[in-house]
Design a protein around this nucleic acid. Structure first.
Length: 333
DNA sequence: AAATGTGGCAACCGCCTGCTA
DNA sequence: TTAGCAGGCGGTTGCCACATT
């Protein structure tokens, strides 16, 4: 693992550490502490640069390192922190005891990031990627206003559009004016951008008030029936989606943005209480397995993933969509 | 069984920041 | 004030293991 053992021009060894080197480093630090990293290798009898010793110690040998799979809670924390902090791995690691920035970075790049991409979520902005469905041409070629957008109601969950409309009304009259008056509507990006901006800019009390409304409205959404979903993106939605159902402030993103990417809708018999409960229990232990469904996946699930799949199934059943192959948007608009 | 592709991850690289003389 | 240095940080590399063809 790692790089081929080699030496640099100063005769210092590079590449993977041997057990003997690890032992030397551990023993030295246990006795003397790390002290000056530059002097450490010489004092410890290691043919390594100080930097290499420091990295080996902080990323692998430190006794408080927690190794093994990331738990569901850890993964949730990483996603949430990343949505706020970005690629500040050390800052994220500071909130995950026993995990190193390097480990978190690797986990993000090899697991979380890929899954977000499969879900059509931009791993940088944590927002839905509209290129996921490439609707730009559709919207650019059609004069669009809010009414026509809401005309999609026949195709998607009507309650979601009701929610979207309600949000537009409650958040800002600007939205309506923008959408209804702008005959040269620039496409879905603008719509979503404006909606998100208004969501973000709304003051705290309004958000609080709005969250209550959201709860009431979401609780009115009829029960849904699971439907076989063939696309990989839909499958992966059942995992990380857990994060996006956690935060009430992100409800809008989940209930409005994501449905816009997934046009076909079907209802299922998920418990509305379980949805609300999930929304109200961010980062708390949730063991609501009564509505768990069995799904097939491309790869075996880790413990954390299995936990998530079960945990998220309620919401995912609720938010399951398909894109009909024969869909003709011109007719709809 | 061999070749090829892919995922995972430890380790390296180079830039940045803060401290100190 | 500034130059030098140590440590921190994020991005990238490249090998190994496993899966797929």
């Amino acid at each position: 693992m790692g790089r081929t053992p080699s030496s640099d021009k100063n005769g210092l060894k590079k590449g993977p550490w041997t057990p003997e080197e690890d032992q030397k480093l551990i023993q030295y630090i246990q006795v003397h502490g790390p002290g000056n990293w530059r002097n450490l290798p010489k004092n410890a009898g290691l043919q390594r640069c100080g930097k290499s010793c420091r990295l080996r110690w902080t990323n692998y040998l430190r006794p408080d390192i927690r190794r093994g799979r990331f738990s569901f809670e850890e993964e949730e924390t990483i996603i949430q922190l990343h949505s706020v902090l970005g690629n500040k791995w050390s800052a994220i690691a500071a909130r995950l005891p026993g995990r190193t920035d390097n480990e978190i970075k690797n986990y993000w790049n090899t697991h979380i990031r890929k899954r977000l991409l499969r879900m059509g979520i931009d791993p940088v902005t944590h927002s839905p990627r509209l290129d996921f469905l490439d609707l730009s041409s559709l919207f650019n070629s059609t004069q669009l206003n809010l009414s026509s957008l809401l005309g999609l109601q026949a195709l998607v969950n009507p309650e979601i559009f009701k929610l979207a409309n309600s949000l537009l009304l409650s958040h800002s009259h600007e939205n309506q004016e923008l959408l209804l008056q702008n005959q040269n509507f620039q496409g879905p990006e603008l719509l979503l951008q404006k909606l998100q901006q208004n969501q973000l800019l709304h003051n705290q009390s309004s958000i609080s008030q709005h969250n209550d409304q959201l709860h009431n409205q979401v609780s009115e959404i009829p029960n849904c029936t699971p439907q076989n979903v063939s696309s990989s993106s839909s499958q992966s939605m059942q995992g990380i989606m857990g994060h996006y159902m956690m935060n009430n402030d992100q409800m809008f993103q989940k209930n409005v943005m994501l449905p816009l990417q997934n046009y076909s809708y079907s209802t299922s018999d998920v418990s509305e209480n379980s949805i609300i409960q999930s929304l109200n229990n961010n980062n708390n232990n949730i063991n609501n397995n009564q509505n768990s469904q069995n799904f097939s996946f491309d790869t075996p699930l880790s413990g954390a993933e299995e936990e998530k799949e079960s945990y998220c199934s309620n919401f995912n059943n609720f938010m399951k969509f398909e894109i009909p192959e024969s869909l003709n948007f011109d007719d709809l608009l």
